[in-house]
Every structure is written in structure tokens, then in C-alpha cells.
Amino acid sequence: MNETSLPESTPSLQRKLEGRALRSMLLSILVWISAILTSIPLFSVLYMLSTRGGARLNWEAFTELPPAGFEMGGGFGNALVGTLFMVGIASLIAIPLGILAAIFLAELGPNSKLATIARFSAKVLAGVPSILAGVFAYATVVVTTGTYSAIAGGVALAVLMLPIVVLTAEESMKMVPKIMKDAAYGMGCTHTQVIWKIVLPTGMPAILTGVMLAIARASGETAPLLFTALFSNYWLIQDGRLDAMNPTASLAVLIYNFSGMPFDNQIELAWAASLVLVIIVLIINAISRIFGKPKF
């Protein structure tokens, strides 16, 4: 290569270049370390949970009722059922309501006053401490029905899920390309047909991602359940009868209760229950990644 035309490198230029290379390297190291630090909490939690909770993760843990006092053995079967049931109720309320509200926000009246208010409420609600969702459900369901119940717990979790579903679903529907909607209108679709046949199906993978994240969030919540579902040492379904109007156990509240007890047996179970909870959340996240593949 002919380098005669290049200006001769002077000592000051050399220093400048060295300075830049040094800064570039330092910055690279900084972002590497930050990325590593970000992944540490999850992996350390997973490690700790599997070493301390893994031992008790047997068939008995999933099928038995929680032990009382000095009892040995036992499990958290009723808490697992309770968590699944209450998250199910919350999903039944929050997912249809959230997606329908999002259709309004994205398609029917994106600039209307109602949309502005609803969007603002959803954003605020998303940031409200989760215990306030419990307060809301306590005031509306527990007080009026006069009992702690799985229904009240489900309502509290629904309040937490709703803003996540609304905001992610609206965003997903807004991402559907306008040219795709134009094509549907050009074929003679009504606005309703465009929404149901194009916008919703096209946005569905992204909507489902949001739904999954909301479910994952709800499954791990403790505070909203503390004074809505409370806890119970019995099965939600007894003698083939569903008992949704009485205090109900959940994994999160079981962990909260047992971890503070002075009995090794209960503490071990709390670790195992934590591991189960984290595994549930991980599975839901994995599913959301499979759904979430962009379609366009």
C-alpha cells in the first residue's frame, strides 16, 4: 500500500489515538460488566432455590396439604391449586376486558377524550404499588361478600394484570402496518372486519406476549392476596365441590407465611414453593417468547 500521501504521524496525534483507544476499551469493559451484573440476580436466585428447595421437590410436595406446627412432611398442593385458580379468574377478567379496551384505544377512538383518559389510567395503574390492588379488591369484594375468598384474590390480581394487557395489546395493534389495513379496506372490508380479520390476528403474537407477561406477574404477587384471599390449610376443591367463597391458599402467601416460621420443615417447604413459583414464571416467559415471534 502506498502511504506516502498520508500526513506523518506526530507524537501528539499518536497520543490522541492512544487516548481514544483506551477510552473505547474502558467503555467496552464497562458495558460488558453491566451486562454480566444484570444476569447475576436471576442466576443466583435460581442457584440458591435449586440447592435449597430442590431437595423437597418431590411428589408429596405437590399433593399434600401444608403441615401445621411441628408436623413433619406435608406439601403445598392446595397453594399451587389456589394460585392457578386465582390467576385463572384474573385472566378471565383482565384478558378479554383488556383486549377489548385496547381495540377501542388503537382502532375506534385513538384520539378521543375517553381514550386519553383510559390510556392515562392504565399507565398510572401499571405503576401503582400492588398492595393497593389488594385494597381495592378488599373494599369491593371482601367487604360486600363478607368473606375472604379466591374470587376476591382473583379480582385483585385482575386489577394488576389489566393495565399490562391494555397497554401491550394497544401497542401490538398499532404496530400492524397501515398498508395491510388499507389492503383489507380495498377488498371491501368494513371497519369491524378489518379489526377482527386483520388487526387482531396480525397483532395476536405480540398481544399474547403481553398477556403472558401479565400472567407471570400475577402468579408471583403476594401483597394483593394478603387481605383478599388470605390463606387456608385446606383444598380449594373438597369432596368434588369448589369452594371459591372462602379463604384460599396461594404459593406466594405460603412462602411469605412459612419463611418466617421457626420450623425447619416449613422453611424447607417455602424454599421448594419458591422454586416452583420461579419455574412457573420461567415457563410462562418461555411460552411468550415462542408466541412473540414477529409476523411481519
Binding site: D182, A184, M187, G188, K197, F296
Partner: peptide, 27 residues
């Protein structure tokens, strides 16, 4: 809406729906 069913349109940007080739044409 009815007018558009009798007078079809092809756009500047190719804009197939995110569905199968068959479903696109059958739409």
C-alpha cells in the same frame, strides 16, 4: 364498502396479509 368490492385495488407497496398464500387469495 360495497363499491370497493366491485372495484379492486393494488397498492404501491406489496401488502399481503400475514396469513398463508391460500388465505390471502381466499380472503
Amino acid at each position: 364498502v360495497v363499491v370497493r368490492r366491485y372495484i379492486g385495488m393494488v397498492f404501491q407497496q406489496p401488502n399481503p396479509f400475514s396469513m398463508s398464500i391460500y388465505d390471502n387469495v381466499a380472503f
